[in-house]
């Protein structure tokens, strides 16, 4: 299974990944149009500055899946075939249990529409939009390493 990894030394904090993410998840896919959408598309990845470096943060689709266990509405499920954590917007009630338990704070509340924001790895596309967009190639889209024994 592929995951997103960040070469933080290469990250300059330009937030192009955030913009490309929001755009990729907007209705229109065009910046000028997307900004006018009622349900404004927000980025599902966030770049933070800490200890003098820049670090993007995104959902890990963890094996431990704390968010799936915590989801009292069964909106979050783990897809056995792909290993991805999927979110069913129709079932979600916006209770923020997933936000409460995510140890990476990678699930962020979109309070306006009462839905959590989290990386879906642009699941319908060949690779995540942020990977293509990153001008410094700081985002890797690679197979997960074998678990450490």
């Amino acid at each position: 299974m592929k995951n997103l990894y960040y070469v933080f030394k290469k990250c300059v904090g330009c937030k192009t990944c955030e913009l490309s993410c929001a755009l990729a998840h907007s209705q229109s896919g065009e910046l000028s149009e997307a900004l006018k959408e009622i349900k404004l598309s927000l980025p599902r990845t966030t770049v933070f500055a800490a200890t003098g470096e820049n670090y993007p943060v995104s959902c890990r689709h963890c094996k431990e899946q704390k968010c799936v266990s915590a989801c009292m509405a069964k909106a979050l499920t783990r897809d056995a075939a792909t290993g991805m954590v999927l979110h069913d917007e129709n079932r979600c009630v916006g209770c923020w249990m997933c936000v409460m338990v995510c140890p990476y704070a990678a699930i962020r509340p979109n309070r306006k529409i009462k839905l959590p924001l989290r990386c879906d790895r642009c699941k319908d596309k060949d690779q995540p939009a942020c990977v293509k967009a990153c001008p410094t190639r700081a985002i890797l889209w690679e197979e997960e390493p074998e678990p450490k024994k």
Binding site: Y6, F48, A50, E53, Y55, R60, Y104, L140
Partner: peptide, 20 residues
């Protein structure tokens, strides 16, 4: 406001890798 996971990466028990 900007406190975030990178501030505590490596300090908690979480196992998933994010940075290389």
């Amino acid at each position: 406001e900007n406190f975030s996971y990178p501030h505590i990466a490596g300090m908690t028990k979480e196992k998933e890798q994010m940075y290389v």
